[in-house]
Nucleic acid binder design. Structure first.
Length: 431
RNA sequence: GGAGGGGUUCCCGAGUGGCCAAAGGGAUCAGACUGUAAAUCUGACGCGAAAGCUUCGGUGGUUCGAAUCCACCCCCCUCCA
């Protein structure tokens, strides 16, 4: 069953490096194995960069293995230097522990805690590091690490070699801490496989070595590739910032839109990375899209599947409802309830009072966050790119914003769906 | 500690007394085309509706006028010790 899992992962392009490659398939086939992946609290939410490893845990669980999601209450206090150009600012223990709680909840949505021997578990490495004293740690753990080997790791090389950079002892120790996690999880849970992004290779192999030395156990490691985009830009960022998994930071609607805007050159690869759809199905979709000229279907499948995974059926409904309402152009068909719902669903919105409007339209839209500066609004007005309830406004309307937001022009007496350009929407409600 | 080079608008990078809100490229925003794509073309791109206001590491100074000259200070890089 599990060599089938590995074959599927490879078909999806999800396997980058494997430690113990020859023995891993047989080991996985031999029964329910325990594996783990760590997530450090560097913010109060994970972003889509963590999605691949999260789904990976799920893939293993679906294949009959037991996933442990480790939240780094301890490692988060130190900071991983891997491939980071600069030393990072330390966060206070209070802040980190607050983030740990958030991440625990977030991570939990992707794996199943019910059921038998392969029920998932969330663990926190602070549990086994908080009470270890320095001398014990140095003697029992530190002694197994060769600094000579540690400074050879590619992940810290630029920090050691580059002029002007540097690495504190604190961050340099990170690898030891993470290695200790693996050996402890091996001891406590029989964990025998660690997975992570390709940047974690050095930390993972460190843990494998330590586990062999202190527990005499042979354990495995597997990394996933860095997600790249065909145009060379960084995955997971948009003009407006990072795409987070937390609905409070990135609304399900914005999340859905992010995936819907995936480039053709990336979409089939992403379907393999980010969904559980069978590879054959994805290949079939690609062929169908290629035969049918015009708009491919893949993006909407991707957006649907990933939004459902992260935000659930209700989040997906909200995202699709907003998308449908905005991009169909049929505003007349929306009821007052629908507008209230859109606002509820995360469509950017604000309440305005005609008497308190600023002097110009540019100010109104900038304050609503639709544009970065008045110049952009001015440009858009000059090109008929500002629409209020589907009516274009011009530069001549700029000085009289009140005229654009009169009750007579409002939908259902109070709503103004305002569009700037093709994709930026904001709902103004008379208050 | 010594010698030299450098810090320019989001990024890279020109600019060495007025014609500089500052070349060029990238990013970004908007328009055309289209599929809410890609590529391409066009426009905008310090802030401001405008009048105007504020920028070129910092602080002072010279000058009718400074990103450009002077003094001191801070930071970065290269070489030497």
């Amino acid at each position: 069953m599990s060599s089938a899992l590995l074959a599927d992962l490879r078909a999806r392009g999800l396997v980058f490096q494997v430690a113990g490659e020859d023995e891993l398939p047989a080991w996985l086939d031999g029964g329910c194995r325990t594996l783990y992946c760590g997530f450090d609290p560097t913010a109060d939410s994970l972003h889509i960069g963590s999605l691949v490893p999260l789904l990976m845990l799920r893939r293993f669980q679906d294949a009959g293995h037991r996933p442990l999601a480790l939240v780094g209450g301890a490692t988060g206090l130190i900071g991983d230097p891997s491939f980071k150009a600069q030393e990072r600012q330390l966060n206070t223990p209070e802040v980190v522990s607050g983030w740990v709680e958030k991440l625990k909840a977030q991570v939990s949505r992707f794996i199943d805690f019910e059921g038998g021997e392969n029920a998932a578990e969330v663990v926190n490495n602070l549990d086994w590091t908080a009470n270890v004293d320095v001398l014990t740690f140095l003697r029992d753990v530190g002694k197994h690490f060769s600094v000579n080997a540690m400074i050879q790791k590619e992940s810290v090389k630029q920090r050691l070699e580059r002029e002007g950079a540097g690495i504190s002892f604190t961050e340099f120790t990170y690898m030891i801490l993470q290695s200790y996690d693996f050996s402890e999880l091996n001891r406590r849970y029989g964990c025998s496989l660690q997975i992570g992004g390709s940047d974690q290779w050095g930390n993972i192999t460190g843990g494998i070595d330590l586990t062999r030395r202190v527990n005499g156990e042979k354990v495995f490691g597997l990394t996933m590739p860095l997600i790249t985009k065909a145009d060379g830009t960084k995955f997971g960022k948009t003009e407006s910032g990072t795409i987070w998994l937390d609905a409070a930071r990135t609304s399900p609607y914005a999340f859905y839109q992010f995936w819907l805007n995936t480039a053709d050159a990336d979409v089939y690869r992403f379907l393999k990375y980010f969904t559980f759809l069978p590879v054959e199905e994805i290949d079939a979709l690609e062929r169908a899209d290629a035969e049918r000229a015009g708009r491919p279907e893949a993006q909407s499948v991707l957006a649907r599947e990933v939004t459902r995974l992260v935000h659930g059926e209700a989040g997906l409904d909200a995202a699709q409802r907003i998308t449908q309402a905005l991009f169909s152009g049929e505003l007349d068909e929306l009821s007052a309830d629908d507008f209230a719902q859109l606002r509820q669903d995360g469509l950017p919105a604000s309440t305005i009072k005609v008497a308190e409007l600023p002097e110009t339209l540019t100010q109104v839209l900038v304050e609503a966050g639709m544009a970065a500066s008045g110049k952009q609004v001015k440009d858009a007005l000059g090109r008929n790119a500002v629409l209020v309830n589907n009516r274009a406004l011009g530069w001549e309307d700029n000085a009289v914003p009140a005229a654009a937001f009169t009750a007579e022009r409002a939908l259902h007496g109070s709503y103004f769906l305002t569009r700037l350009g093709k994709k930026k929407y904001h709902l103004f409600e008379l208050g």
